[in-house]
Simulated scan of single mutants.
Amino acid sequence: MLIPAEDGPAIVACNTCRHSKESQTDADGQRGGAQLVAALRAVQQGDARYAGIAVQEMPCLFSCAEFCSVHVRAPGKVGYVLGRFTPDEDAATAILDYAVHHAASEHGRVPFKQWPQGVKGHFICRTPPPGFVAE
């Protein structure tokens, strides 16, 4: 049931997330999670700043009420689940920008002044790395 993935800085996106609070799919029948994964990959491929961040996907992060959810993680760092995104390039850019700051941080805590505007208000929870809890 588990699939090995790179153990470096990553954005794990739910590929089955709802398109919005109101609907599971868009007018073409695509789920928001699949659209967000595609946007993340397109933005990542177009900018070398994002080369060190893996874009990974999996079905259901169990934050269904928050639609278009991602988990930003890196080894030995506090991780974050974010959601309520519109599955587009603007959201993908903000998520990738935050992930770059997260990867460069010592413990996963990014100073608020470095947060891209596009991630503010989208945090759902933080997750401790294996073997640690946050203070």
Results as ranks from 00 to 15, higher is better:
P87H: 09
S69A: 15
V100D: 09
P111V: 03
G83L: 13
A27L: 10
R109K: 12
V133T: 14
W115I: 03
D90M: 00
Q45H: 07
T86H: 03
L40R: 05
T16C: 12
T25F: 10
K77C: 05
P128E: 12
F112I: 07
F112H: 08
H107M: 03
Y80C: 09
A99M: 08
S20R: 08
V43M: 04
A5G: 10
Q30W: 05
S69C: 15
A74L: 03
Q24D: 14
E66Q: 14
R126E: 14
A65R: 14
P129C: 00
F67E: 09
S69D: 13
R41K: 12
P75F: 00
C68G: 05
F123S: 11
G76R: 06
D88G: 12
A65Y: 13
A38C: 03
E57Y: 03
R41E: 13
P75D: 01
L61K: 00
K113V: 11
A27V: 11
M1S: 14
Q24S: 14
H101T: 09
V72I: 15
E106C: 05
T25S: 13
V43I: 07
C64L: 06
R126T: 15
N15H: 12
P9Q: 11
S23K: 15
A48Q: 08
A5F: 11
L96A: 02
E135C: 08
A134Q: 13
H122G: 08
A10M: 02
H107G: 07
G29I: 09
G32H: 08
G29W: 04
A92I: 06
A103Q: 11
C17R: 01
V55H: 01
I124F: 04
K120D: 01
Q114C: 06
H107V: 06
T25M: 07
G46I: 02
A74W: 05
G52S: 13
F62L: 13
M58L: 11
P116G: 04
E6I: 08
Q35P: 08
A51S: 14
V55S: 01
H101C: 11
R41A: 01
I95L: 08
L40Y: 09
Q45M: 11
Q44H: 07
T127L: 15
S20C: 13
D47K: 00
K113W: 07
A48I: 06
V70D: 04
V133H: 08
W115N: 04
P4W: 10
Q45V: 05
T25K: 13
E135W: 07
T25L: 07
D28T: 15
S63F: 15
K120T: 12
F62P: 01
V70G: 05
D47R: 01
R18I: 04
A65W: 12
C64P: 06
Q117H: 08
Q56V: 09
I53E: 00
W115H: 14
A103V: 04
A48Y: 00
V119F: 01
N15I: 11
A10Q: 09
M1C: 08
W115G: 03
G108V: 11
E66V: 06
D7H: 05
S69V: 15
H102V: 05
A39F: 09
A65G: 14
G118F: 05
H122N: 12
